[in-house]
Amino acid sequence: MSSMGRAGKVRVERRLMIARHGARLLDRKQHILADELERLQLRAELARTEWDELAREAALWLRRSAALDGSARIEAAAPLEPAGVQLRWGSTMGVAYPEDPECQLPAGPVTGGSSALSYTAAVHRSVLEAGVRLAAVQRAESLLTAELAATRTRQRAVENRWIPKLENELLDIRRQLDAQELEESLRLRWAADRNVAAAGGPARDAKRKEGA
């Protein structure tokens, strides 16, 4: 058995062990990502429902306010500064994604107008907050979906290509080593037989001389 053959066998066995361990880790990661994604999908569905309901209510009250106050007063009621968003970041299996965003709303100017205008402004602020929450959870859902797909692709590559390739390579090495062992064993046996035959030749010659 050659040292190169033994070294190759050890090297492939180590790589195969690493590949199998990697496949188990990828499988575990896939299940964790799938569970977290399911949770986010539920949150996204609830956030989308909330946003839809508030958006319809805001549109309704905007029409009422437009009829009562006019477009000039509606425009005057709009805040002078833009809203801001502060994101918090969560992480699952190394994937960072936004969660629990905080919408920072500027104060609106003090203007006259009907109670409809005041409620219209309030409900639009609620719509904006709901929209920020929906956008954050949709972004988180998108990031985890992409990572889950990539993890599944890597796992399939390891299980369907890398591991079978290494198993076949290891099988070939073992066959070669078995053949070398058999060849070496036969060579040693033939050498032993020749030595026995060579040792028996002088003994036969001596017996012939004694008989003569």
Rank of each mutant, 00 (worst) to 15 (best):
P106L: 01
Y97I: 01
H124W: 05
H124I: 01
L62V: 01
G112C: 08
A107W: 07
R73P: 04
P79W: 07
L68N: 03
S115D: 15
A77V: 02
L134D: 11
D69V: 03
A121M: 10
V85E: 15
E81G: 04
E75A: 15
E75K: 10
A130H: 02
V95C: 06
R125H: 13
E45M: 07
R43A: 04
P101V: 15
L46T: 13
P98W: 02
A47N: 00
G90W: 06
G108F: 05
P82K: 14
T120F: 14
W61M: 10
A58H: 03
L46I: 08
E50G: 02
P106I: 07
A130I: 06
A67C: 05
A116G: 07
L54C: 08
A47W: 00
G131F: 00
E81I: 04
A140Y: 04
P98T: 09
V95I: 09
A122N: 10
G90V: 01
A59E: 05
I74A: 00
L134N: 13
R133Y: 00
E102Q: 10
A130K: 02
P98R: 07
S65H: 08
L105D: 04
D52M: 15
V123P: 02
R139Y: 09
R139K: 08
Q86W: 13
V127R: 00
V132Q: 09
P79Y: 12
P109K: 12
Q41R: 11
P101E: 08
A77W: 00
S65W: 15
S126V: 05
E102R: 09
A122V: 11
H124E: 14
A140N: 04
A44P: 11
G112V: 07
Q138I: 04
L54M: 14
E75T: 14
L54Y: 15
L54F: 15
R56M: 04
P79L: 13
V95Y: 06
L68H: 01
E99H: 02
L117K: 00
Q104N: 05
S114A: 11
A66P: 00
M93F: 11
R125D: 13
P98H: 09
W51V: 05
A55D: 04
P101C: 14
T120Y: 12
R63M: 03
T92N: 02
E75W: 03
P106F: 05
G113A: 07
E45I: 06
A67L: 04
A58F: 13
P109T: 09
